[in-house]
C-alpha cells in the first residue's frame, strides 16, 4: 500500500458517499445515469467474486464488501425508492455497445483462460468505459449539478491515482499488470474533458454547462 493507492481508494469511497448523499438529501436521482450505475454494480460483482476464494487483507475484503453493498444501495435508490425522479429519457446510451466489446475483448486478451480470471478481466475493461452513459447524459442535457460534478471528479481521480500507484509500483517493486494499466489509462483519458470543465468552471463557482 502506498500513498497513491490509499488516496485512490479514499477518492473512490468519497465519490460513492457524495452520490448516495446527493440522492438521499434531494430525494431525487435526477441527472444520474442509472445505466452507469448498473455497469458499476456489474463491475464490482464480477471482480469481487474472488472474495470467496482468496483473502488478501482485512482492508481489501472490507472495501470489496463496501463497494458491493453501496452499488446495490445506489441501484435500489435509483430504480425503486426514487424511481419517479429518474431521468430515463436522457439516459439513452445503449449499454450493449459497451458490454459486448468488453466481453469479447476479455475472452481474447487475458492473463489466463479461466472463469475467475476472465470475469476479472471483463470487469477491468467494463470499468474503464462504465462512466460513458453518465458522461453521455451530461452531454445530452448540456449541464450537470455541482454535486454531480464533484461526484464525477472524485470518481475520475480514483483511477488517475491508481495510475500513479502503478508507476510507483513499477519503480519500487518491478510490479505491473498491463491489462489493468491500459484500461486504467483509457478510463482516465475518458475523464480528461470533464476534468478540464470541472477545473475551469465548477471550481470557479460556475455551473457546469456545455457550449450549445
Amino acid at each position: 500500500m502506498n500513498i497513491f493507492r490509499l488516496m485512490a481508494d479514499l477518492a473512490h469511497v468519497l465519490a460513492i458517499v457524495i452520490l448516495l448523499h446527493k440522492i438521499w438529501k434531494s430525494r431525487s436521482c435526477a441527472g444520474i445515469s442509472g445505466k452507469s450505475q448498473i455497469l458499476f454494480a456489474l463491475v464490482y460483482f464480477m471482480r469481487y467474486l474472488d472474495i470467496m476464494t482468496s483473502y488478501v487483507s482485512f482492508y481489501n475484503s472490507t472495501m470489496k464488501l463496501l463497494f458491493l453493498g453501496t452499488s446495490g444501495a445506489t441501484l435500489n435508490l435509483i430504480y425503486r425508492k426514487f424511481k419517479p425522479s429518474y431521468d430515463h429519457n436522457h439516459d439513452s446510451f445503449r449499454i450493449a455497445y459497451l458490454l459486448v466489446p468488453c466481453a469479447l475483448l476479455s475472452l481474447f486478451l487475458n492473463h489466463e483462460f479461466s472463469v475467475l480470471e476472465i470475469l476479472w478481466t471483463f470487469s477491468i475493461y467494463l470499468e474503464s468505459v462504465a462512466i460513458l452513459p453518465q458522461l453521455f447524459m451530461v452531454a445530452k442535457t448540456g449541464e450537470a449539478e455541482s454535486i454531480t460534478s464533484h461526484y464525477l471528479f472524485a470518481l475520475g481521480s480514483y483511477r488517475a491515482l491508481y495510475v500513479c500507484n502503478w508507476v510507483y509500483r513499477y519503480i519500487a517493486e518491478s510490479h505491473f499488470d498491463l491489462i489493468a494499466i491500459i484500461a486504467g489509462l483509457v478510463q482516465t483519458i475518458l475523464y480528461c474533458d470533464f476534468f478540464y470543465l470541472y477545473i475551469t468552471k465548477v471550481l470557479q463557482n460556475r455551473k457546469l454547462q456545455l457550449p450549445a
Binding site: 493507492r5 482468496s54 472495501m63 476479472w120 489493468a180
Partner: peptide, 10 residues
C-alpha cells in the same frame, strides 16, 4: 520483472 495480476488491488 514478473507480470502478475494485481489482485491485491481493488
Amino acid at each position: 520483472i514478473h507480470i502478475q495480476p494485481a489482485k491485491d488491488e481493488l
